[in-house]
């Protein structure tokens, strides 16, 4: 039996193998993904982002238990950074997980960024497709948490939860980190620590000054203590409320359509880039060109334009 056949029968290990296959871009992975894509689209994708150590994984653990209570199957993808120096990675988000039932209701996969810099690995969205096709109802995605703009999450998720803590600074710093624009829901975690209330009020004022139309979503700010699961149920309710809201306002599908469009353009631009660059192989004398540029006889723009025109002629 092939791994894909086992996958369709609900074999967890087959899912894991297929995720590795996608992650490693083993030859044939595009065909495989194409097939999975047609089976996917049902699962909700919820992203959690925010500065390191803010409690994202602990919140994920809490949310998993909320979803289990209503008999939903949960897939988790937790992303941690790859060291640019060694290519290795230490993936430690699993430490925050409690023991889950053995029946396959929860599936947790750690991923290393492997060179990507937008907060996720470049294969994270594709791994979510595999989990979706496998039959998970909800997919929780935790970003690396550098606390800087992590825009990949918008292209991958339906809902973005931004998790900050009293230690991560005030609303201005949150804004500077670009977290204001991407949050559908704010969590001020570690509310057991001093400064949480102040940060929440501060944040609320900042959000209110950003003028909005009537009927826009009011970005909620929830104070949680993830280690005791305090207010995690509230977060869960707000996520559901938000999803109901975007579905009612046809924002949900507009957003997904946007994501699909971006996906197609992405696949295409990768294809073109690879084809173009490999087409240059052996045909271009880079050393000569660089010599000429250094001597001031030509420049990178002119040279690239010539190469591009050449490429257009052949193809």
């Amino acid at each position: 039996m092939t791994t894909l056949e086992k996958f369709y029968q609900g074999d967890i290990r087959a899912l894991s193998r297929i995720i590795s296959f996608i992650e490693n871009r083993t030859s044939g992975y595009r065909d495989l993904l194409g097939r999975l894509y047609e089976k996917a689209g049902r699962a909700l994708r919820i992203g959690l982002t925010g500065p390191p150590g803010g409690g994202k994984s602990t919140l994920v653990n809490g949310l998993i238990h909320e979803y289990l209570k209503i008999s939903q199957k949960v897939g988790v993808i937790a992303v941690d950074p790859t060291s640019p120096f060694t290519g290795g990675a230490l993936l430690g988000d699993r430490v925050r997980m409690n023991e889950f039932p053995a029946g396959g209701e929860v599936y947790f996969r750690s991923m290393a960024t492997r060179g990507a810099s937008g907060g996720l690995a470049s294969a994270t969205g594709n791994v979510a497709v595999a989990m979706d096709a496998f039959g998970f109802d909800v997919i929780l995605i935790e970003t690396v948490g550098v606390g800087q703009v992590e825009l990949d999450i918008i292209d991958t998720c339906d809902v973005v939860v931004v998790v900050i803590v009293p230690e991560s600074g005030d609303a201005v710093q949150t804004m500077k980190a670009g977290l204001m624009e991407i949050a559908d829901i704010f969590v001020v975690n570690k509310a057991d620590r001093p400064g949480a209330e102040k940060l929440a009020i501060n944040l609320k004022q900042t959000i209110q000054t950003k003028k909005k139309k009537d009927g826009d979503w009011n970005i909620p700010i929830i104070q949680t203590v993830a280690i005791n699961k305090k207010n995690v149920d509230l977060l869960f309710d707000k996520i559901n409320e938000y999803i109901a809201f975007i579905k009612d306002n046809s924002i949900f599908f507009a957003h997904r359509r946007q994501q699909i469009r971006k996906k197609i353009l992405n696949i295409l631009s990768n294809r073109f880039r690879i084809e173009f660059i490999s087409g240059l192989e052996g045909k271009v004398d880079f050393d000569q060109i660089i010599d000429d540029i250094l001597k001031g006889k030509t420049n990178p723009y002119k040279v690239s334009e010539e190469m591009y025109q050449q490429f257009k002629k052949i193809s």
Binding site: T82, S83, G87, G88, A89, L90, R94, V95, A112
Partner: peptide, 16 residues
């Protein structure tokens, strides 16, 4: 050990 494996270029999942 986890740090040494990572520095050797491996992906180490630490589960606690």
């Amino acid at each position: 050990i986890a740090a040494a494996f990572r520095d050797a270029g491996m992906e180490v999942i630490y589960s606690g």
